[in-house]
Simulated assay, not measured.
Amino acid sequence: MRKFARFISVLAFAASPLLAIAGAVEDLQAFLRDTQSFQAEFRQTISNRQGVQAQEAFGLLSIVRPGKLRWEVSKPHPQLVVGNNEKIWIYDPDLEQVTLRRDDLTSGSSPAALLAGRVALEKNFSLRADGESEGLQWVEATPKASESNFEKIRIGLSGKTLRAMALHDNFGQVTRIHFSKSEPNPKLPASLFTFTPPPGADVIGE
């Protein structure tokens, strides 16, 4: 009887991490379902196919779902990306250049659409739990669209809180983003998601 009780105890202990991993997909779905707005500081690194880090940047991410996103790099080189429904503005102050793209952030299989979209995640991505590392539970999201620029996107969660993303593109490059000081459902002003090109800036793509 004691051996049986010990067996049950060991089995329960061993199963608990598996249950946590299996719940990572549900935690991601809950995060997206319950999050109407989101703001966090970020650290972004980009590594090549050999794993050599080539770039590092810091800034602030702001999102209002669906379709509004602001990605503001503060250092080492300022850059601003503002997405509002079907337009995305990319402003490079050093070059005094603005690039306008017409893109729908509410659908599709881009990382931005994953965070700011309104379409059910499973429509555009195949999801699977991807284990635990760095103290986070990870979900792997593989784009279903063959024309996607990304091979896969890994999302790291602490409970139902977004903590990290790793974007693996089709050229072997990996962009890692770690979020800190995150705030779920803050009240964000509409002015964050509007953009007017500064006087004198070259505008490309209009």
Rank of each mutant, 00 (worst) to 15 (best):
F58I: 02
P111M: 09
M1G: 11
R176A: 05
S191P: 00
S158L: 10
N149D: 15
K152I: 09
E96V: 03
L127K: 13
Q50S: 08
F4R: 03
K144R: 08
L11V: 10
G51F: 07
R70A: 10
N170A: 05
P186F: 11
R70E: 04
K144Q: 03
E41N: 13
G159D: 03
L100N: 03
V64E: 00
L157K: 09
A30P: 11
L188R: 05
S74L: 13
R101C: 03
L192S: 03
D104T: 07
N48P: 08
F179P: 02
Q50M: 04
E96R: 10
S109C: 00
L28E: 14
K181P: 00
P197Q: 08
S133H: 01
V73S: 13
A22N: 06
F31P: 08
T45Y: 04
R102S: 11
P184F: 05
G205P: 09
A20H: 07
F125S: 14
G159C: 03
I46G: 01
A129V: 13
V81P: 10
E86N: 13
I63A: 01
L105E: 15
G156Q: 12
P66E: 01
V98Y: 05
A14K: 01
S180Q: 02
S148N: 12
E147M: 06
I21C: 06
Q44N: 13
L127C: 15
G172R: 03
V98A: 04
G108H: 07
A145F: 00
A166Q: 12
V25H: 09
Q79G: 11
K3R: 15
D104L: 08
R65M: 05
N185L: 09
T35F: 02
F125A: 15
L167C: 03
A20F: 10
T99F: 09
N185G: 06
R2C: 10
S126N: 13
F31E: 10
L127N: 13
L61T: 06
V139Q: 07
